[in-house]
């Protein structure tokens, strides 16, 4: 018996946890980590669905998500380094020049 519904519920829980992390934590590195959690949760949902329908498509999509996450993380962390170099702080609330 494939735990389809439970799998989706698990994915939903992990997703909202990641969302909470994005909204709560002010440290940029933690924000990026929380985004990774969200991406992973979405991937989990795809895998569950792919297993349910006995197709490799879910895994293929997960692969794409993985590639995307890799690219995003590399650029994002490079930006984090640059940010720290410029502002000497990792507080997202302090980096709000794009206001108004």
């Amino acid at each position: 018996m494939l735990p389809v519904r439970e799998g989706f519920v698990l994915a939903a829980i992990l997703f909202t946890l990641g969302l909470t992390g994005v909204l709560v934590r002010r440290n940029v590195v933690f924000v990026l980590m929380s985004i990774e959690v969200m991406l992973n949760a979405a991937g989990l949902a795809f895998i569950v669905a792919g297993a349910r329908w006995r197709q490799p498509d879910g895994q293929v999509v997960f692969l794409f998500i993985l590639a995307m996450a890799a690219a995003e993380v590399s650029v994002g962390l490079a930006l984090v380094l640059e940010l720290y170099h410029q502002y000497k702080s990792l507080d997202t609330d302090a980096i709000s020049r794009m206001r108004g």
Binding site: R5, L23, G50, W53, R54
Partner: peptide
């Protein structure tokens, strides 16, 4: 906010009925 979203998602997931299937991967 996240709790509300979670509640909504779970409610949607619980609503429909999924025909059971055997474990089979690829």
């Amino acid at each position: 906010l996240a709790a509300v979203l979670l509640a909504e998602l779970i409610w949607i997931l619980m609503r429909g009925s999924v025909p059971p299937a055997e474990a089979a991967g690829a």
